[in-house]
């Protein structure tokens, strides 16, 4: 991780001082454990604040949307897939982007680590050699890093950047032995009543802050349907009808676009597993159209181009 940080700083300094880009978007070290802050470096001096470790789970593609300057962005595998999606969806031209690709080893799941701490507080976290060392008041824990990754990271098969101008480290080995859809199949196997209940329970604590939506690079509509007031499509209450409407529509708007980066889930203050909605759609799009979002600039997204061999069984 230290090595990545050094490489990121060096590259940023060079790009900024040679005026190859106007700004560099990366992370700086957070003020509390398990958190880093998305950061905009405007000059070579500020590049020294850039930082990288296993707490960079927020997707930085979210910060380049509609920018008109020349931007370098530090991007792990999933972030680069969202950058590809952004380019395909005309959110930023490729020539304005300089991608500092980060071969990713997975991001830490702060909630699961917190659960291990049993209410005690972490003051300091160090990562090294596949281990996470957590220190706090009256507690010192050494955890196997691989066991404490975000859910999406533990099943990720695109850890390496799919598009980049420069890498900040050696490419990593991709995971091959993962079952990406075990949880989706579990839900599919439920009868409709059970399934309904499963999703009702899932979102029962939602406070409708919309952090999940706002943390998502693919949610960039100038006015989101939940913010429309003339007419108003969704009520602002926490009545299950309103909450459901939000979640269903959010998920459908991401069909064939979600890269399973997990930014939404990481951002949710209530710890709601919102990827349970988008993953089903991801699986469907893959099965029906053989499409995985954001892997290539040469392939139009499944839902924005008609192909003669698209499945049409739903037309009755």
């Amino acid at each position: 991780m230290q090595a990545y940080t050094q490489k990121i700083r060096e590259a940023a300094r060079r790009l900024l001082s040679e005026k190859k880009v106007d700004v560099v978007i990366g992370f700086r070290k957070g003020t509390i454990p398990f958190m880093n802050e998305p950061f905009l470096a405007r000059n070579a001096e500020q590049a020294a604040q850039l930082y990288w470790d296993g707490n960079c789970g927020i997707n930085l593609a979210n910060y380049v949307t509609k920018r008109t300057d020349r931007v370098a962005v530090v991007a792990k595998g999933c972030d680069t897939r969202n950058l590809v999606t952004h380019i395909l969806e005309n959110q930023i031209p490729r020539e304005n982007l300089y991608i500092l690709g980060v071969p990713c080893k997975g991001m830490l799941d702060k909630r699961r680590i917190a659960a291990e701490l049993n209410g005690r507080e972490a003051n300091d976290v160090e990562e090294s050699d596949g281990k996470v060392l957590v220190k706090g008041r009256g507690v010192e824990l050494t955890l196997d890093r691989g066991e404490y990754l975000q859910d999406n990271c533990s099943i990720c098969i695109h850890r390496n950047p799919v598009l980049y101008d420069e890498l900040v480290g050696e490419l990593v080995e991709e995971q091959t032995n993962v079952d990406r859809y075990a949880d989706v199949r579990r839900v599919e196997a439920m009868d409709p009543g059970e399934r309904w209940q499963y999703f009702e329970d899932l979102i029962s604590t939602c406070v409708r802050c919309y952090a999940c939506r706002n943390a998502c690079p693919a949610c960039y509509c100038p006015t989101c349907f939940v913010d429309e007031s003339r007419p108003q499509w969704v009520g602002k209450t926490i009545d299950p009808t309103d909450t459901r409407t939000f979640h269903f529509l959010r998920a459908y708007h991401l069909a064939g676009r979600c890269t399973d980066c997990g930014s939404c889930e990481r951002a949710c203050p209530m710890g709601i597993k919102v990827r349970q909605f988008t993953k089903k759609l991801e699986k469907d799009v893959k099965e029906l159209f053989g499409y995985e979002a954001g892997l290539s600039l040469d392939q139009r997204p499944a839902l924005d181009a008609f192909q003669p061999d698209d499945p049409q069984a739903f037309i009755k």
Binding site: E37, P38, F39, L40, N62, Y63, V207, C209, Y210, A211, R213, N214, A215, K236, A267, P269
Partner: peptide, 20 residues
């Protein structure tokens, strides 16, 4: 810069009192 305008901070805050 980093703010995603989610409103989480206001929802958890005991002194954020605004309403519609």
């Amino acid at each position: 810069f980093s703010c995603i305008n989610c409103g989480t901070c206001t929802f958890v805050c005991p002194t954020c009192w605004c309403f519609d």
